[in-house]
């Protein structure tokens, strides 16, 4: 199973540096969870890996091949090995659920048409959805969209899976079903995967390794257990979800304002 090696990855938008010489090794057949604050560039990282965004510097090796040096045609070949779940699901809203899930299967002629229905049904069952094939994305709830997006990502059985917040917006039981699914895909099919999550419970459960993204760099990579007991103040503030610490030091003003206003347990979101 392919290993993903990222070296010195830099990505800027205008003069705003989002990724700043980031290094990360994602071992083959393992699940690496990337954690980090909102807006630190986790989604950007995944898009760079897929070549959806062109990074400014650095290299991204997938099984030894540098994605950054590839032209569009080679990228197409490489992308066939990937599946990606988008943060906003990104379902095709002009197609129903079945056509969404079956999309890659039909494009790649992976199965004869009569077989595709069964595959779609099977993949939807894996994410806990039944008999919704003919619904349009606009008729689904946020959590359902997420799961259809996941079913679509795994439908063509890729070797590498990128999950951008797979459990966000799901109820705890369904979140656990998805966690089980991610683990099963890794164990039985040996999928290499990168997951992004804010949900530490889920992270501990599915991760072989956890990497913390902070200020454009990976500041620590370790197993779930090591992360939980990390001595790095930034990491420990994040995994324990404390409002006070080095991450929020820059937001002292904000924290004080919330305290004074008597605002209840605020988590900074978006």
């Amino acid at each position: 199973m392919p290993t993903i090696e990222i070296r010195g990855l830099t990505k800027r938008f205008g003069n705003k540096v989002v990724l700043d010489g980031l290094d990360l090794t994602v071992p083959g057949g393992r699940n690496t969870v990337v954690i980090g604050g909102s807006g630190t560039g986790k989604s950007v990282l995944l898009k760079c890996v897929l070549g959806l965004l062109r990074a400014d510097e650095g290299e991204i090796r997938i099984g030894g091949e540098d994605v950054m040096k590839m032209d569009e045609r080679e990228l197409v070949r490489v992308r066939r090995r990937f599946g990606m779940l988008f943060q906003g699901a990104a379902l095709f809203d002009s197609m129903n659920v079945e056509d969404n899930v079956a999309f890659a299967l039909r494009r790649l002629h992976k199965y004869p048409e009569r077989q595709i229905r069964n595959v779609v049904e099977e993949k939807l069952a894996m994410v806990g959805l039944y008999n919704i094939q003919s619904l349009m994305p606009s008729e689904l709830s946020g959590g359902m969209k997420k799961r259809v997006g996941l079913a679509r990502a795994i439908a063509s059985e890729p070797e590498i899976l990128l999950y951008d917040e797979p459990t966000t917006g799901l109820d705890p039981i369904m979140a656990d079903v998805i966690n089980e699914l991610i683990i099963r895909l890794r164990v039985s099919l040996g999928v290499t995967s990168i997951s992004i999550t804010h949900d530490m419970k889920s992270a501990y459960k599915i991760a072989d390794h956890i990497a913390m993204l902070y200020k454009g760099k990976i500041i620590e990579v370790a197993t779930a257990e090591e992360i939980r007991h990390s001595t790095n103040p930034v990491v420990s503030q994040f995994v324990e979800g404390r409002a006070q610490g080095p991450i929020t030091a820059e937001h002292e003003e904000f924290i004080r304002f919330v305290r004074r206003g008597g605002g209840s347990g605020v988590q900074e979101e978006q």
């Binding site: 004869p112 009569r114 077989q115 039985s188």
Partner: peptide, 11 residues
């Protein structure tokens, strides 16, 4: 696969 048996027509 995974205990799921599928028959496939190969043309």
């Amino acid at each position: 696969t995974d205990g799921v048996t599928s028959r496939q027509q190969q043309d």
